[in-house]
Write a protein that binds this DNA or RNA. Structure first.
Lengths: 132, 132
DNA sequence: TCATAATTGCAACTTTGTTGCAAAAGTATC
DNA sequence: GATACTTTTGCAACAAAGTTGCAATTATGA
Protein backbone atom coordinates (compact mmCIF):
# COMPACT_ATOMS: atom_id res chain seq x y z
CA UNK A 1 0.00 0.00 0.00
CA UNK A 2 1.22 3.50 -0.87
CA UNK A 3 1.84 6.00 1.95
CA UNK A 4 -0.96 8.19 0.58
CA UNK A 5 -3.42 5.28 0.75
CA UNK A 6 -2.38 4.44 4.31
CA UNK A 7 -3.09 8.02 5.36
CA UNK A 8 -6.47 8.03 3.60
CA UNK A 9 -7.40 4.66 5.09
CA UNK A 10 -6.92 6.07 8.61
CA UNK A 11 -8.70 9.34 7.85
CA UNK A 12 -5.58 11.50 8.00
CA UNK A 13 -4.89 14.42 5.71
CA UNK A 14 -2.04 14.08 3.27
CA UNK A 15 0.99 16.23 4.01
CA UNK A 16 4.50 15.85 2.65
CA UNK A 17 5.98 15.18 6.08
CA UNK A 18 3.49 12.43 6.89
CA UNK A 19 3.99 10.81 3.49
CA UNK A 20 7.78 10.83 3.87
CA UNK A 21 7.62 9.53 7.42
CA UNK A 22 5.54 6.52 6.37
CA UNK A 23 7.91 5.89 3.47
CA UNK A 24 10.93 5.88 5.78
CA UNK A 25 9.25 3.43 8.16
CA UNK A 26 8.09 1.23 5.30
CA UNK A 27 11.58 0.95 3.87
CA UNK A 28 13.31 0.35 7.22
CA UNK A 29 14.32 -3.20 8.06
CA UNK A 30 14.43 -2.42 11.75
CA UNK A 31 12.47 -0.30 14.20
CA UNK A 32 13.49 3.37 14.21
CA UNK A 33 13.77 5.94 16.97
CA UNK A 34 12.38 9.47 16.55
CA UNK A 35 15.96 10.71 16.18
CA UNK A 36 16.73 8.20 13.44
CA UNK A 37 13.56 9.29 11.67
CA UNK A 38 14.60 12.94 12.06
CA UNK A 39 17.99 12.20 10.47
CA UNK A 40 16.37 10.48 7.49
CA UNK A 41 13.97 13.38 6.85
CA UNK A 42 16.54 15.33 4.80
CA UNK A 43 15.06 18.84 4.95
CA UNK A 44 15.25 19.78 8.61
CA UNK A 45 11.81 19.07 9.99
CA UNK A 46 11.13 20.33 13.50
CA UNK A 47 11.53 17.80 16.34
CA UNK A 48 8.12 18.78 17.68
CA UNK A 49 6.41 17.94 14.40
CA UNK A 50 8.01 14.50 14.38
CA UNK A 51 6.95 13.81 17.97
CA UNK A 52 3.41 14.91 17.17
CA UNK A 53 3.22 12.88 13.98
CA UNK A 54 4.53 9.76 15.71
CA UNK A 55 1.97 10.14 18.48
CA UNK A 56 -0.81 10.64 15.94
CA UNK A 57 0.26 7.55 13.97
CA UNK A 58 0.39 5.54 17.19
CA UNK A 59 -3.10 6.63 18.27
CA UNK A 60 -4.52 5.85 14.83
CA UNK A 61 -2.88 2.43 14.77
CA UNK A 62 -0.46 3.01 11.90
CA UNK A 63 2.66 2.29 13.90
CA UNK A 64 3.72 0.21 16.84
CA UNK A 65 5.83 1.46 19.73
CA UNK A 66 8.61 -0.73 21.12
CA UNK A 67 10.12 0.39 24.42
CA UNK A 68 13.70 -0.85 24.24
CA UNK A 69 15.32 0.97 27.10
CA UNK A 70 14.68 4.00 29.28
CA UNK A 71 16.45 6.22 26.77
CA UNK A 72 15.31 4.50 23.63
CA UNK A 73 11.87 4.01 22.11
CA UNK A 74 11.57 2.72 18.57
CA UNK A 75 8.71 2.54 16.10
CA UNK A 76 7.63 0.18 13.34
CA UNK A 77 4.98 0.41 10.68
CA UNK A 78 2.12 -1.99 11.29
CA UNK A 79 1.64 -4.22 8.29
CA UNK A 80 -1.57 -5.95 7.42
CA UNK A 81 -2.18 -9.39 8.90
CA UNK A 82 0.67 -8.95 11.31
CA UNK A 83 0.26 -8.93 15.04
CA UNK A 84 2.26 -6.45 17.11
CA UNK A 85 2.53 -8.70 20.11
CA UNK A 86 5.43 -10.77 18.81
CA UNK A 87 8.75 -10.50 20.64
CA UNK A 88 11.47 -8.07 19.59
CA UNK A 89 15.20 -8.57 19.65
CA UNK A 90 17.45 -5.71 20.75
CA UNK A 91 21.14 -6.06 19.88
CA UNK A 92 23.14 -4.45 22.67
CA UNK A 93 26.15 -4.05 20.34
CA UNK A 94 24.74 -2.41 17.21
CA UNK A 95 21.54 -1.19 18.95
CA UNK A 96 19.27 -2.48 16.17
CA UNK A 97 15.79 -3.76 16.97
CA UNK A 98 14.25 -6.47 14.79
CA UNK A 99 11.00 -8.40 14.97
CA UNK A 100 11.27 -12.07 15.86
CA UNK A 101 9.19 -14.80 14.26
CA UNK A 102 5.74 -14.99 15.73
CA UNK A 103 6.23 -17.74 18.27
CA UNK A 104 3.16 -18.39 20.37
CA UNK A 105 3.59 -16.36 23.54
CA UNK A 106 2.75 -18.17 26.73
CA UNK A 107 -0.57 -17.37 28.25
CA UNK A 108 0.80 -16.32 31.62
CA UNK A 109 -1.39 -17.48 34.46
CA UNK A 110 -2.41 -14.03 35.61
CA UNK A 111 -3.90 -13.49 39.05
CA UNK A 112 -7.71 -13.26 39.08
CA UNK A 113 -9.18 -9.96 37.97
CA UNK A 114 -6.26 -8.85 35.84
CA UNK A 115 -7.01 -7.83 32.25
CA UNK A 116 -4.38 -7.73 29.52
CA UNK A 117 -4.27 -5.19 26.71
CA UNK A 118 -0.82 -5.55 25.20
CA UNK A 119 2.33 -7.53 25.72
CA UNK A 120 5.84 -6.22 25.12
CA UNK A 121 8.75 -8.65 25.08
CA UNK A 122 12.28 -7.46 24.50
CA UNK A 123 14.98 -10.06 24.19
CA UNK A 124 18.41 -8.55 24.70
CA UNK A 125 21.57 -9.99 23.29
CA UNK A 126 23.87 -9.84 20.31
CA UNK A 127 22.76 -10.34 16.73
CA UNK A 128 24.18 -12.50 13.97
CA UNK A 129 26.34 -9.74 12.46
CA UNK A 130 27.82 -8.68 15.80
CA UNK A 131 28.64 -12.28 16.76
CA UNK A 132 30.87 -12.87 13.74
CA UNK B 1 18.19 -10.20 55.73
CA UNK B 2 18.79 -6.76 57.24
CA UNK B 3 19.70 -3.83 54.97
CA UNK B 4 23.07 -3.58 56.72
CA UNK B 5 23.81 -7.24 55.97
CA UNK B 6 22.82 -6.84 52.33
CA UNK B 7 25.28 -3.95 51.99
CA UNK B 8 28.05 -5.90 53.70
CA UNK B 9 27.38 -8.98 51.57
CA UNK B 10 27.95 -6.96 48.40
CA UNK B 11 31.02 -5.17 49.74
CA UNK B 12 29.38 -1.77 50.03
CA UNK B 13 29.99 0.69 52.83
CA UNK B 14 27.13 1.38 55.19
CA UNK B 15 25.59 4.83 54.93
CA UNK B 16 22.24 6.00 56.21
CA UNK B 17 20.92 6.75 52.72
CA UNK B 18 21.83 3.29 51.38
CA UNK B 19 20.31 1.59 54.39
CA UNK B 20 17.06 3.52 54.06
CA UNK B 21 16.87 2.96 50.32
CA UNK B 22 17.14 -0.81 50.76
CA UNK B 23 14.52 -0.67 53.50
CA UNK B 24 12.08 1.20 51.24
CA UNK B 25 12.56 -1.30 48.42
CA UNK B 26 12.26 -4.24 50.79
CA UNK B 27 8.95 -3.01 52.16
CA UNK B 28 7.46 -2.10 48.75
CA UNK B 29 4.94 -4.50 47.26
CA UNK B 30 5.54 -3.12 43.79
CA UNK B 31 8.48 -1.85 41.79
CA UNK B 32 9.38 1.77 42.52
CA UNK B 33 10.63 4.59 40.31
CA UNK B 34 13.51 6.83 41.39
CA UNK B 35 10.99 9.59 42.03
CA UNK B 36 8.84 7.35 44.23
CA UNK B 37 11.98 6.42 46.16
CA UNK B 38 12.87 10.12 46.49
CA UNK B 39 9.44 10.88 47.95
CA UNK B 40 9.74 8.10 50.51
CA UNK B 41 13.18 9.26 51.68
CA UNK B 42 11.75 11.86 54.10
CA UNK B 43 14.74 14.15 54.60
CA UNK B 44 15.34 15.69 51.21
CA UNK B 45 18.10 13.62 49.71
CA UNK B 46 19.60 14.94 46.48
CA UNK B 47 18.28 13.44 43.23
CA UNK B 48 21.85 12.83 42.05
CA UNK B 49 22.64 10.73 45.09
CA UNK B 50 19.58 8.57 44.46
CA UNK B 51 20.47 8.08 40.79
CA UNK B 52 24.01 7.14 41.75
CA UNK B 53 22.91 4.78 44.50
CA UNK B 54 20.42 3.05 42.21
CA UNK B 55 23.08 2.59 39.54
CA UNK B 56 25.51 1.21 42.11
CA UNK B 57 22.90 -1.24 43.46
CA UNK B 58 22.11 -2.34 39.93
CA UNK B 59 25.75 -2.94 39.05
CA UNK B 60 26.30 -4.90 42.25
CA UNK B 61 23.21 -7.00 41.65
CA UNK B 62 21.11 -5.81 44.60
CA UNK B 63 18.24 -4.51 42.51
CA UNK B 64 16.56 -5.27 39.21
CA UNK B 65 15.59 -2.64 36.63
CA UNK B 66 12.24 -2.86 34.85
CA UNK B 67 11.79 -0.53 31.89
CA UNK B 68 8.05 0.12 31.80
CA UNK B 69 7.87 2.99 29.40
CA UNK B 70 10.20 5.59 27.95
CA UNK B 71 9.47 7.93 30.83
CA UNK B 72 9.20 5.33 33.52
CA UNK B 73 11.80 2.93 34.87
CA UNK B 74 11.14 1.06 38.08
CA UNK B 75 13.31 -0.95 40.44
CA UNK B 76 12.87 -3.97 42.67
CA UNK B 77 15.04 -5.52 45.30
CA UNK B 78 16.41 -8.89 44.20
CA UNK B 79 15.49 -11.56 46.71
CA UNK B 80 17.37 -14.79 47.18
CA UNK B 81 16.36 -17.76 45.04
CA UNK B 82 14.33 -15.53 42.74
CA UNK B 83 15.03 -15.08 39.06
CA UNK B 84 14.68 -11.64 37.49
CA UNK B 85 13.57 -12.93 34.10
CA UNK B 86 9.92 -13.42 35.04
CA UNK B 87 7.29 -11.24 33.35
CA UNK B 88 6.06 -7.99 34.90
CA UNK B 89 2.57 -6.55 34.85
CA UNK B 90 2.10 -2.81 34.37
CA UNK B 91 -1.33 -1.41 35.24
CA UNK B 92 -2.09 1.44 32.85
CA UNK B 93 -4.64 2.88 35.28
CA UNK B 94 -2.83 3.02 38.63
CA UNK B 95 0.64 2.77 37.07
CA UNK B 96 1.77 0.05 39.49
CA UNK B 97 4.22 -2.63 38.40
CA UNK B 98 4.08 -6.07 39.98
CA UNK B 99 5.97 -9.30 39.38
CA UNK B 100 4.00 -12.13 37.81
CA UNK B 101 4.34 -15.76 38.83
CA UNK B 102 7.36 -17.38 37.27
CA UNK B 103 5.73 -19.04 34.26
CA UNK B 104 8.18 -20.79 32.00
CA UNK B 105 9.05 -18.34 29.25
CA UNK B 106 8.96 -19.70 25.73
CA UNK B 107 12.26 -20.50 24.15
CA UNK B 108 11.77 -18.36 21.06
CA UNK B 109 13.22 -19.92 17.96
CA UNK B 110 15.83 -17.26 17.32
CA UNK B 111 17.48 -16.93 13.92
CA UNK B 112 20.89 -18.58 13.66
CA UNK B 113 23.79 -16.68 15.19
CA UNK B 114 21.76 -14.71 17.70
CA UNK B 115 22.83 -14.86 21.33
CA UNK B 116 20.53 -13.99 24.22
CA UNK B 117 21.58 -12.30 27.45
CA UNK B 118 18.35 -11.18 29.10
CA UNK B 119 14.63 -11.20 28.45
CA UNK B 120 12.23 -8.48 29.53
CA UNK B 121 8.48 -8.96 29.28
CA UNK B 122 6.02 -6.24 30.23
CA UNK B 123 2.36 -7.14 30.13
CA UNK B 124 0.17 -4.05 30.00
CA UNK B 125 -3.41 -3.94 31.18
CA UNK B 126 -5.51 -3.20 34.20
CA UNK B 127 -5.06 -4.78 37.60
CA UNK B 128 -7.57 -6.39 39.95
CA UNK B 129 -8.20 -3.23 41.98
CA UNK B 130 -8.73 -1.01 38.92
CA UNK B 131 -11.14 -3.52 37.34
CA UNK B 132 -13.57 -3.41 40.25
C1' DT C 1 -10.93 30.42 -5.52
C1' DC C 2 -11.90 31.21 -1.00
C1' DA C 3 -13.03 30.36 3.78
C1' DT C 4 -12.28 27.22 7.33
C1' DA C 5 -9.88 23.78 9.69
C1' DA C 6 -5.75 21.29 10.40
C1' DT C 7 -0.69 21.15 10.36
C1' DT C 8 3.85 22.98 11.15
C1' DG C 9 7.63 25.78 13.28
C1' DC C 10 9.34 28.48 16.94
C1' DA C 11 10.23 29.58 21.67
C1' DA C 12 9.96 28.37 26.15
C1' DC C 13 9.45 24.95 29.54
C1' DT C 14 9.48 20.26 32.02
C1' DT C 15 11.30 15.90 33.24
C1' DT C 16 14.93 12.66 33.66
C1' DG C 17 19.41 11.77 33.98
C1' DT C 18 24.75 13.00 33.85
C1' DT C 19 29.34 15.23 35.14
C1' DG C 20 32.84 17.86 37.84
C1' DC C 21 34.12 19.50 42.03
C1' DA C 22 34.19 20.66 46.87
C1' DA C 23 32.32 19.44 51.47
C1' DA C 24 30.90 15.83 54.54
C1' DA C 25 30.82 11.24 56.22
C1' DG C 26 32.72 6.52 56.53
C1' DT C 27 36.80 3.18 57.33
C1' DA C 28 40.97 1.53 58.99
C1' DT C 29 45.02 2.17 61.79
C1' DC C 30 47.20 3.48 65.60
C1' DG D 1 39.03 8.05 70.65
C1' DA D 2 42.14 10.81 67.35
C1' DT D 3 44.13 10.81 62.81
C1' DA D 4 44.76 10.14 57.89
C1' DC D 5 42.79 8.47 53.83
C1' DT D 6 39.08 7.06 50.89
C1' DT D 7 34.39 7.12 49.70
C1' DT D 8 29.96 9.32 49.58
C1' DT D 9 26.98 13.22 49.21
C1' DG D 10 25.27 17.82 47.69
C1' DC D 11 25.47 21.59 44.63
C1' DA D 12 25.69 23.74 40.20
C1' DA D 13 25.65 23.31 35.60
C1' DC D 14 24.65 20.72 31.67
C1' DA D 15 22.36 17.45 28.21
C1' DA D 16 18.76 14.73 26.03
C1' DA D 17 13.94 13.78 25.26
C1' DG D 18 9.61 15.29 25.13
C1' DT D 19 5.52 18.83 25.92
C1' DT D 20 2.71 23.16 25.42
C1' DG D 21 1.01 27.62 23.57
C1' DC D 22 0.77 30.47 19.88
C1' DA D 23 1.35 32.35 15.36
C1' DA D 24 2.22 31.25 10.52
C1' DT D 25 1.63 28.09 6.92
C1' DT D 26 -0.64 24.48 4.38
C1' DA D 27 -4.57 21.26 3.22
C1' DT D 28 -9.59 20.45 2.30
C1' DG D 29 -14.21 21.05 0.85
C1' DA D 30 -17.73 23.92 -0.97
Amino acid sequence: MKPEDILAKHGLSRTSIRTKLIQILAEAHEALSSKEIEQQLDDNVDRVTIYRTIKLFEDKGLIHKIVVDEQSTKYRLIRENKSTDHPHFHCIKCDKVVCLPDTPLPCCDLPQGFRVSTQNTIIEGTCQKCNK
